[in-house]
Amino acid sequence: MRLIPAPYGFIEKGEIHFNGRNLLALPEKEMRSIRGGLISLIFQDPMTSLNPVFTCGMQIQESIHTHLSVPKSTSLDMTHQILKEVGIADTERVVSSFPHQLSGGMRQRVMIAMALVCSPKLLIADEPTTALDVTVQAKILDLLHTLQQSKDMSMIMITHNLGIVGDIAHNVMVMYAGLLMEYAPVNVLFDSPQHPYTINLLETIPHLHGKKQRLNVIPGDVPTLSSIPGGCPFHPRCNRCMDRCRTSEPPIFNTANNHQVRCFLYE
């Protein structure tokens, strides 16, 4: 999205290709038309990411007017239409409500409506359900899934909940300390994880069914980004750490079709 705050952080190198265009080389003006138009973002916390002094209707309409030149009456119709699509029955009330008048689940639906109103090609959902209850989370996941299918849209789901991954994703990328650790189709990742971090992570989760046993633990703590250990960043916590892991960072190995692992074990 090119939203890294400018003086503190910068994109050192690399390219991001979207529909054949390198986003990092685009002028700011064109980038503005892509944000919200072709690529949309749903934020983690629906409480703080809506503007408290505008009604929900106005906030959705703002997104429409930025990207499409349509009269106000059309954008109002579109707003009602998209709110119906995200499962809100009483659209009149929601359009004229301020965010604080709605429940968490409703606010997250308004966020989703705002992101989808211009029919983006790619939706990035950054922990869209972390702030919600399990029952509401289930509804939002269903909603995202149906919308993704009906609008033929690509989606990047960012989450720490492996249950959600199993529920919604096709391909999974596991990251640790800023690096790709493992990349695989979802069923491959859960059936035969290869990176020690992924294996451990799956073992630490308490299960709802099956035998109760003592949880496996990944020792140590998550490193802060300012003090990432040298070599493989996971080596201090890894149970299969070798000498060379301490000194050099492993490259990515292709272990099978579409399965990538960053670990010397698979050299």
Partner: peptide, 11 residues
């Protein structure tokens, strides 16, 4: 109980 997504299986 039904709402909880299970790792690898979903809900």
């Amino acid at each position: 109980l039904e709402s909880i997504p299970l790792p690898g299986k979903g809900r």
